[in-house]
Design a protein around this nucleic acid. Structure first.
Length: 801
DNA sequence: AAGGCGATGTTTTTT
DNA sequence: ACATCGCCTT
């Protein structure tokens, strides 16, 4: 088991099953009785194609992991003979964890459980030469991709203003998702990008090959190409993977679909799990058709429907089912539950987005305290799910000023941050002076007085001598092709690169270890050196750390913090090379902060999660369903939006509160909004129409009121609105209740203090109101903020590296 | 070469 | 409203 050469894999596969089962160490027993009949069927139907249609909250992961455990325990497969693919690292991690809980350490042997990309990279590193690459190819991120495209567009003499690189990247990415190599792009698409799309795609692929690099789309596409052109290799993998399992099948694109179909062609032991009603990634190439066609693709497929829901109340399920029923082209499932309790789905119309944010904030506080008649709900159990991330702002601003702790899920990912990519570029250069993209990125970061012209000189010199940019820069320095300051800086830069590289390669390469072979299917010479010290040295000597230390923008302390995180992440690897090889595929969000916090995220980010209490604000025409989605994709777009609504509602366990506002600021303009058509699609007998104050005075409202209300957007005449008017309510009238007075906060600051806030940056204290400080921020304007979120500006400056 | 100013285009996001 | 981007000024 400690060698993983191809030959051995063949040997293993050739041994009769019965014998292997006997040789296998006993597995801890696990329990099939905990499954319902449908789940059990999905687990026990091991041979042949199986489509597990798993509605929201029906125990899909349980069935999937139990199926794997069952395959192993019954001796149908060894751990390394199972291919199990997911879309995200998070899903893969959870699956590993849960399989581990079922079968214990044997889980460790599942070398082919991972994301589509991680599994394909593993394969591609073994066969890279078949597509003109070397095994150590680098994986470009989106930023590198776009910079590369920009160069190609300019080289082709195309106006990059009218034809932005971003757009080309999008087009090529879409083509790759459809598994179209440049020669396979159909004539119907030849007009793309001013008829230059295909030639530029060809040029781009050539450039990638020269750089020994791939982008994310290539990872799948190259493997499909290899399988299609090398039947022997395909056959080997077909024998190797006795069983294939796929999570979230409705999200697969054509390239992923082809890859799976090729691998499953032999034995057809493929089990795809998914829910056509939760297909929400059409815009990035996912083909719902893949799941709709499953039975045609795999004749004789066994279809299992998981329809018993263990998550939500009957009202919530009824609401979700009612909305999704409007979609055509469904495989059709009917969720049911044995529960009979629970309150109806709440529907509230607000005057505007600010009121919506304010009332939801109050409702959250009330539920947290349990003053709504419910048992208190922890903040971790509550979430606000929005259609588009800009909707989060209203909530963030409001929650910051009332001191309600929140956490935004999603957003920029750790390895996508500027400072992390800069640092990584330095590491890449230290490992390989051939990395031209990395050189371009950091040659003038921090500023070394090497501007566009200097870079052009370096590029020209490199091209003339047919060497890398680093070597080109060396020649530039030797021949003094650059002016005073720039020359001096560049010379120092090249010397630094040499010094760092010496540290990387001076160390004695140790013996090739088994793990390198196991993990990647290829062999790396792994030098031993203190890579953490080296990384710190690089960041220090390059002046990069100092650059951020001198930066006074509100983001700077956070960026330094991130750099520290990055260096810490190195501890998990033996050297920089190993780190760089793996990290490009682990584009994860930062580790979850602790503490009770209400979550704010997009509907997309919410897929797969669940919360006792879910708020779904902004159900307005144009916003949700998104106008753009409907304009660009018509009915298809609308149906995807509706699936998004379905995903949103089904995240809720106990309470689902949908809301819309009559007025909203859109791109700075106030706009009058109509309630979403999805509001009309809610079943009135499962809905309580509430009024903005959150008091239940609208409970007497019946279905006809709901309809009228929804259509006229007549919140002006709602009891709640009239009451607010009568009160002469001011939008930001301070509320005496709900506020915990923090005595220490008040004394900590006085008027005129220079202060710092995580989100708003620097500012001066203008006044004190209760436990809140009125602060005039340099950039964000004047705001009322709870004192405990404020630190003195001196303290903020004091973030050492 | 680097910082300031007007035109621009605004969904969703993993790997 | 707001941020990003390319161009223009210094």
């Amino acid at each position: 088991m400690n060698d993983f050469s191809e030959e051995d894999a063949f040997e293993a596969a050739a041994v009769p099953l019965s014998q292997r089962a006997m040789a296998r160490p006993a597995m801890p027993d696990f329990d099939l009785d905990g499954l319902n009949p449908a789940q059990r069927e999905a687990v026990e139907t091991v041979n042949g194609p199986v489509l597990m249609l798993a509605g929201a909250g029906t125990g899909k992961t349980k069935a999937l992991t139990t199926r794997i455990a069952y395959l192993l325990a019954t001796g149908n497969a060894q751990p390394h003979e199972i291919l199990a693919v997911t879309f995200t690292n998070k899903a893969a991690r959870e699956m590993k964890l849960r399989i581990g809980a079922l079968i214990g350490d044997a889980q460790e042997g599942m070398r082919w459980l991972g994301t589509f990309h991680s599994v394909c990279v593993k394969q591609l590193r073994r066969h890279a030469e078949l597509v003109g690459l070397k095994s150590g190819f680098t994986i470009l991120d989106t930023d590198d991709q776009i910079r590369l495209m920009k160069q190609l567009i300019e080289a082709a003499g195309i106006d990059a203003k009218r034809w932005p690189p971003r757009m080309l990247a999008g087009i090529i990415d879409a083509w790759k998702n459809k598994a179209w190599t440049p020669d396979k792009v159909p004539a119907s698409d030849s007009g793309a990008f001013d008829y230059q799309g295909v030639p530029l795609y060809t040029a781009y692929q050539k450039r990638l090959r020269d750089l020994n690099a791939v982008d994310f789309g290539d990872i799948l596409l190259h493997m499909v190409t290899i399988f299609q052109t090398h039947p022997d290799i395909l056959h080997q993998y077909q024998r190797w993977f006795r069983y294939i399992l796929v999570d979230e099948y409705q999200d697969t694109n054509v390239a992923q679909y082809l890859w799976l179909r090729l691998l499953a062609q032999g034995h057809k032991n493929i089990c795809c799990v998914g829910d056509d009603d939760q297909s929400i990634y059409g815009w990035r190439g996912a083909e719902v058709g893949n799941i709709l066609r499953f039975e045609t693709d795999f004749p004789g497929a066994h279809v299992v429907r998981l329809e018993e829901n263990y998550r939500s109340t009957p009202h919530i399920l009824a609401a979700a089912s009612s909305v999704i029923a409007e979609n055509k082209d469904r495989l059709g499932k009917t969720l049911f539950t044995s529960r009979t309790d629970g309150e109806k789905v709440r529907l509230t119309g607000y005057w505007d987005g600010d009121e919506e944010a304010r009332c939801i904030g109050e409702e959250i506080e009330a539920m947290q305290r349990g003053t709504r008649g419910n048992a208190p709900v922890g903040l971790d159990g509550m979430a606000i799910l929005v259609r588009a991330s800009h909707q989060m702002r209203a909530f963030e601003d409001r929650f910051l000023s009332i001191g309600l702790p929140y956490r935004v899920i999603g957003g920029p990912r750790f390895y996508e941050r500027m400072e992390i990519r800069d640092a990584m570029a330095y590491f890449r250069l230290a490992v390989s002076h051939d990395d031209d993209l990395a050189f371009e990125r950091v040659v003038n970061t921090p500023k070394r007085g090497l501007g566009e012209k200097a870079v052009q000189t370096i590029q020209r010199t490199a091209r003339e001598n047919n060497v890398s940019l680093v070597e080109g820069a060396r020649i530039v320095c030797q021949n003094r092709l650059l002016g005073g300051k720039g020359l001096k800086e560049l010379t120092g830069f090249v010397q630094s690169l040499d010094r760092w590289q010496q540290t990387v390669y001076a160390a004695t390469p140790p013996l090739i270890d088994d793990d390198a072979v196991l993990d990647d299917g290829f062999v790396t010479a792994a030098p031993v050196y203190d890579h953490i010290a080296l990384a710190e040295m690089i960041l220090d000597e390059s002046g990069y750390t100092g650059y951020w230390q001198n930066d006074k923008t509100p983001e700077a302390p956070g960026r330094l913090e991130n750099l520290k995180e990055l260096v810490k992440a190195l501890e998990n690897f033996d050297n920089l090379q190993g780190f760089l090889e793996h990290v490009s595929l682990i584009m994860e969000n930062e580790t979850e902060e602790q503490g009770e916090k209400v979550s704010i995220m997009t509907l997309h980010a919410a897929k797969g999660l669940e919360f006792p209490v879910v708020f779904l604000p902004g159900w307005e025409e144009g916003l949700f369903p998104s106008q753009r989605s409907m304009d660009e994709n018509g009915l298809k777009g609308l149906e995807e939006e509706r699936r998004l609504a379905y995903v949103g509602i089904t995240r809720a366990e106990e309470i689902c509160a949908i809301s819309f506002a009559s007025n909203r600021r859109v791109y700075g303009q106030w706009q009058s909004q109509l309630p979403s058509r999805f509001v009309d699609e809610l079943p009135s007998k499962h809905v309580d129409v509430l009024t903005p104050s959150g008091l239940n005075s609208g409970a007497g409202m019946v279905a006809s009121d709901l309809h009228e209300k929804a259509h006229s957007a007549d919140v002006y005449n709602s009891p709640g609105w009239k009451r607010l008017q009568a009160r002469g309510q001011k939008p930001n009238a301070p509320r005496a209740q709900n506020v915990t007075i923090d005595a220490t906060a008040e004394s900590a600051f006085t008027q005129g203090d220079r202060v710092f806030h995580q989100k708003f940056g620097y500012g001066y204290v203008d006044g004190i109101e209760g436990d809140k400080l009125v602060i005039a921020f340099d950039k964000a304007g004047t705001k009322h903020v709870v004192a405990r979120f404020i630190v003195s500006a001196d303290a903020a400056d004091d973030v050492p590296f």
